[in-house]
Nucleic acid binder design. Structure first.
Length: 365
DNA sequence: AATGCGGGGAT
DNA sequence: ATCCCAGCATT
């Protein structure tokens, strides 16, 4: 829920406008009110930085100075002019839209946000941008910059990707527009996001609305906007055995390639569907080291998250029964004492087991 | 709601 | 390496 204060509502837009009019950067499409030129610039600026766009914009307008010129051009010519800018559907849509403007709108861009959105490649953002900057309409924009600024100034705790939050941000962006000034105000918000209210290191000491910023007050400016929750990671159940043979414990070294390569671990592995934990452990120990064990009591359960999956590790005390340990499906095996364990590198997920081991050993001494 | 779509600059 | 950029269309 977004709850702007009256002070924010009244003071922030004016402060931003004043700041923007003093401090805005030079851009070749600023200062023109040619709707065609503004449209081209906005399409090019979709997901693309000002510095990347500038040379393309200049070349494009020279080559296709009007809607009619663009509509008459061959697609191949348009694409050639776009070459290197990326997102080439933008160029195809631009060409299509130009033809549509000639055919349906007499060669003039439609003058409402709603009609603008009927053009291919023109969504809610671009429609608002052209409507406000080219036609002076009080239409809002919401892009990555505006989203970041709003989430910080109004301390929006929910991820702005969520549809419900999007809806509120659009409403707020509209509400903030000083009547008749949407063009400059929208640009001011984006300019602030691009130069001051930066994603990682916002320059709050240079921000014209810092005193009105809720995130800054609570020192949360680098934690907002919140990123969408990532998808739940795939999960695996793992078993491992602390296998005793007299005073020694069996460990094995993982093969040098792959996950956790070269680290030592307690023998074990993934539990297969339908297997009990103990069945899986006996099987894995046999496959990995070639020995038979009796699985005893469970000594630890460890939850661990890797970057792209997570595991639940069940550790069991085991007793050596028969066979000779050898590196069958691992790089090396070794019988060691509890005291020696600390000399070997273990994955983080095994540290809990190691700790348990030290503790229980001391207790039995 | 999730993806695909490009290429480059900042960290 | 990862994030992010004056987003849109498609599924």
């Amino acid at each position: 829920m977004i709850r702007p204060t009256n002070r924010q509502l009244h003071e922030a837009p004016e402060a931003l406008l004043a700041w923007f009019r003093r401090r805005q950067r030079e851009m070749p499409w600023r200062g023109t009110r040619d709707p065609y030129a503004i449209w081209i610039s906005e399409i090019m600026l979709q997901q693309t930085r000002v510095t990347a766009v500038t040379p393309y914009y200049l070349r494009f307008l020279e080559r296709f100075p009007t809607v009619g010129a663009l509509a008459r051009a061959r697609l191949g010519t348009v694409l050639k002019c776009w070459e290197g800018l990326g997102y080439y559907s933008r160029a195809r849509n631009l060409h299509q839209a130009a033809k549509q403007i000639v055919r349906d709108f007499g060669g003039q861009l439609p003058r409402t946000a709603e009609e603008l959105q009927t053009l291919p490649g023109v969504g809610r953002y671009t429609a608002g941008a052209v409507a406000s900057m080219a036609f002076g309409l009080d239409e809002p924009v919401l892009d990555g910059n505006v989203t970041r600024v709003l989430c910080r100034v109004f301390r929006v705790a929910e991820p702005p990707k969520q549809q419900a939050v999007q809806k509120q941000l659009w409403r707020l962006a509209r509400k903030l527009i000083p009547p008749g000034e949407a063009g400059d105000f929208n640009q001011a918000m984006m300019e602030l996001g691009a130069t001051i209210c930066l994603p990682r290191n916002p320059r709050c000491d240079s921000c014209p609305i810092c005193p009105l910023c809720r995130a800054h007050r609570y020192n949360e400016q680098t934690r907002l906007p919140r990123k969408a929750d990532k998808k739940p990671l795939p999960h695996q159940t793992i078993v491992a055995g602390v296998i005793r043979k007299g005073p020694r414990i069996l460990i094995d070294r993982r093969r040098p390639e792959g996950l956790l390569g070269g680290l030592w671990e307690f023998p074990g592995g993934k539990v297969r569907p339908g297997e009990t934990l103990r069945q899986a452990l006996r099987r894995e120990v046999r496959e990995e080291t070639g020995i038979e064990v009796r699985v005893g009591r469970q000594i630890a359960v460890v939850q661990h998250a890797y970057s792209h999956f997570r595991i639940t590790l069940h550790a069991f005390a085991c007793e050596y029964q028969s066979g000779t340990a050898k590196p069958v499906q691992c790089d090396d095996v070794k019988w060691v004492t509890v005291e020696q364990l600390s000399q070997f590198a273990f994955p983080k997920a095994n540290h809990g087991i190691l700790k348990q081991l030290e503790t229980s050993t001391k207790n039995t001494e």
